[in-house]
Nucleic acid binder design. Structure first.
Lengths: 132, 132
DNA sequence: CGTAATATCTGTAGTCACTACAGGATCAAG
DNA sequence: CTTGATCCTGTAGTGACTACAGATATTACG
């Protein structure tokens, strides 16, 4: 059930989360402080490995550490399904906004870049646009 | 030509860049240190206002301060048109990559969210997916 | 002219999510 | 037994600001 057999290095290899990051998560309370050996080395079990993988997945999906904290139920209590949905859809909204913003940027920038003659003078249409 | 008649507050109003940010740009060498009054207050002219607006436009288009530094010719010399184009198209590539990444995220997240029953239990499909 | 509100000054610390050391202790392999 | 890998703590750096604290200076109003 809970053999604490993983060193931080093995945990790092298993989960793809860097050692420093694991310690950082512990420091900010996103991971619990695990038991230590006599020489104060951290030892982890598979449940903690699961939690760390959860965090990593969440980060890959762009959730903030605060979101993940809430999803893990570390705030005050385990969130209800409705609350999880709330967090997730707020996050999706954020992503959609970001995409829209970036698309606008891309459009503007590529049309500006089209005007550029790409020659060796410092007289550049892009610069002129930015200065206008 | 160069009446230094703008206080930092007026410059801030004219350009939409916050006072603290203007001072920060000066500190990191993105804006020159302007002349001061007897009581050491900064005074700006329209050329400096133009430069600040340039920086602001660049930031709005998502350029990094380092990019902007290069575009302004603060590195070593004024960039050629070809170099400006280089910076710009590298930036556009970055934006395109970001858009692609975010789109993937959005897809994953909204399909995960669809599975969610939105009820009052803590038994949530989203959480299960993240833990799987 | 006095006072009060506003503007500016410097310097430092906080944000987010790590990352990169420095300097020391401990462990495993040969 | 020695060497190299791993781990420890603590601090500082990243980017691009933002937010103070505490001091000074200017401006507006009565």
């Amino acid at each position: 059930m809970d053999g604490f057999e993983l060193t931080i290095g093995k945990l790092s290899d298993q989960t793809g989360v860097k050692i420093e990051t694991i310690r950082y998560y512990e420091k900010i309370g996103l991971m619990p402080a695990p038991p230590r050996t006599e020489s104060r080395r951290r030892m982890y079990n598979s449940a903690l490995a699961d939690q760390l993988r959860f965090i990593r997945r969440g980060r890959e999906l762009g959730f903030s550490l605060d979101d993940i904290r809430a999803l893990l139920g570390l705030e005050d209590r385990k969130p209800t399904c409705a609350e999880v949905f709330e967090i997730t859809s707020a996050h999706v909204d954020l992503i959609r906004t970001k995409i829209a913003d970036l698309k606008k940027l891309e459009k503007t920038l590529s049309s500006v870049a089209k005007e550029c003659s790409r020659n060796k003078t410092p007289d550049c249409a892009i610069i002129k646009t930015l200065f206008s």
